[in-house]
Simulated scan of single mutants.
Amino acid sequence: MLIVMAGLPATGKSALAARVAVELRCTVLSVDPIEAALWRAGVDRDQPTGLAAYVVAEDLAREQLRIGGDVIIDAVNDAGLARRQWRSLADEQRVEVAFVEVVCADPEEHRRRLENRRRELKGFPEPTWEEVRARTPGFDGWDDERITVDSMRSLDENVTRTVDYLRGCRGR
């Protein structure tokens, strides 16, 4: 199965992805660390490294799916093109695709989380609140079947709901 996380930065996608991966014993491929690695390798930031990170994640996911592993893609996935990329990969590999949208229903809490977030991604700047809000329209009109979890609920509750949902997606 290809599990695709989606949601604005700092909503809790990575925390949920990590816990779900432990529960389901699968691989997590996160776009931000891939992009940070491209920069550390000397690829100029004025190059389309964000797109390149999605392409690298896709190729790594393809290999994991080919050998029978389940994969979680951890990325914002706010563009319809990105979500189509994952549907196409799942079709190509003849596996189920399941989308998990993570939201933070309280904008003040979301902003606080963003402004206090400290990740171990050397040289990877955190986006501003304005940059995050500017990505919101990318989710408008998204009509893929998915589970939406609110990170204002406990992580344990969201892990349980998500894992139950994903187990129900198998063999649909």
Rank of each mutant, 00 (worst) to 15 (best):
V22R: 12
V22M: 06
E23H: 12
E23R: 14
L24S: 09
R25S: 15
R25P: 04
C26F: 12
T27C: 06
L29I: 14
S30I: 00
S30L: 02
V31F: 00
D32R: 07
D32V: 00
D32H: 01
D32C: 01
P33V: 00
P33Q: 06
E35L: 00
E35A: 07
E35G: 06
E35D: 06
A36V: 05
A36E: 07
A36W: 04
A36D: 05
A37Q: 11
A37M: 11
A37F: 01
L38W: 06
L38V: 00
L38Q: 07
L38Y: 05
R40I: 00
V43R: 04
V43S: 01
V43W: 07
V43C: 02
V43L: 14
D44V: 03
D44T: 06
R45K: 15
R45W: 13
D46A: 08
Q47L: 13
Q47T: 07
Q47V: 02
Q47G: 01
P48S: 09
T49I: 14
T49D: 03
L51K: 13
L51D: 14
L51R: 14
L51N: 08
L51G: 07
L51H: 14
L51E: 14
A52M: 15
A52K: 03
A53R: 03
Y54C: 03
V55K: 08
V55D: 13
